[in-house]
Write a protein that binds this DNA or RNA. Structure first.
Lengths: 214, 214
DNA sequence: ATTTTTATAAGTAGAAACACGTACATCTAC
DNA sequence: GTAGATGTACGTGTTTCTACTTATAAAAAT
């Protein structure tokens, strides 16, 4: 059904590799399996093999999964790397996504999930264990939580935005065709309302409240 | 196999609702289907029905999907709402996640995806169309991209960090047990190195480069 | 071993920000 | 129709920042 895949398992635990190999060969996935014990071995071998899917452990001796992923993708950006992580180490996910992993599996997943991850990533999608996905979504939520409870007027927001752009009061005045003295007053009011005591705090406030985007 | 679900479809396009209803009743999902034409109708009815899954369009007259989701979850935070979106409107996803949706489906998905989304979300997971997931991941990546390529010295980073906290040069000097004039000089050098022209730009630079966290 | 970078400190001056006032026209809300 | 918020503008200070300069010692890099 699916073409014969070349799957590369990078993990320092022999038993884990063997188990996964067994599961893969007893599944209906046609695959050749290659192995490495750590990131260094993998980096030495992957170019000869050119695997379709790489299952990459994160915590490994010599060269860890994050570095290995990063380095391998520098050489071949098309590589499809799925991170493998112990439960509890799921916080590595940002670093692995950063490094360029296309998927993230927890080691306590069912084999069916592994299968799905392999097929999804092979077909160009991303795959993330539900627990990881949950974390990602929660994270997105968290950051947006405190928004829009400032009581600045429209004009004040406009002034603040321009302050963040690095304009001086004089420049802002020119841009908005008002007097510099007016901008002074607005700025003063904004400082009061936001309980800031200088420009630095104003900018931090603006960014926190999504008035200015970094 | 699965218990009989109560599925609530909220969408202003009759044809779309009818089509989805047909597909759901011809699938192996045992479900009672309820319908509303917009967010207002939904908000009027959902408490009586107490649905297991809500498929919620985003762009609708009177009350849109984002507001409806937000309001409904205020009343019952346990509701499992899956957002439905036209291809091209996928940028609503942040707002829908924000509002509390547990899943996000594109309307050009295959019915199988709809089925999976319903089952996943019903069982407490999140479900996101691959295209959406892609967007989320890319977004995570993007933000981390430009890091650590500043050439500020350690001391300069320290000074900059303190500037972002809203301290004046004088206060920074006191904190670090150095002369205010030294801080002045550091600040000048930082402005030069970061090609900033004032405090506002400094703070933006610091946040962009993860020297200061908002 | 010598050059460069870094951290420190200071003088002088002008620009900008900050703080306190006052004032008035407009618009919204009660 | 009056109260409150908003946007506009000015006066007069003080404080802080910005910009130019010089200088020394230690650390790092070449």
């Amino acid at each position: 059904m699916t073409p014969k895949l070349k799957i590369f398992i990078v993990d320092d635990h022999n038993l884990f590799r063997e188990g996964l190999l067994f599961l893969l060969s007893n599944s209906n996935l046609e695959a050749d399996i290659y192995e490495a014990e750590n990131g260094e071995q993998f980096l030495d071998k992957f170019q000869l093999i050119n695997p379709d899917i790489i299952l990459m452990d994160i915590e490994m001796p010599v060269i860890n999964g994050i570095t290995a992923t990063y380095e391998a993708l520098k050489i071949n950006p098309e590589l499809k790397i799925i991170a493998l992580s112990m439960y509890g180490n799921e916080n590595y996910y940002t670093e692995m996504i950063d490094a360029g992993a296309k998927g993230f599996l927890l080691k306590n997943s069912k084999f069916d999930d592994v299968r799905n991850a392999i097929l999804d990533v092979y077909s160009g999608k991303n795959y993330f264990s539900p627990e990881i996905l949950d974390g990602i979504i929660k994270n997105l939520n968290k950051k947006k939580y405190k928004k829009a409870n400032y009581n600045l007027s429209e004009r004040e927001v406009e002034i603040l935005y321009n302050i963040c752009k690095g304009l001086s009061n004089h420049e802002i005045a020119d841009n908005l065709f008002i007097s510099k003295r007016t901008v002074d007053k607005h700025r003063e009011n904004i400082l009061l309302k936001t309980q800031s005591k200088n420009t630095a705090e104003l900018v931090v406030y603006a960014i926190k409240n999504k008035i200015f985007e970094v």
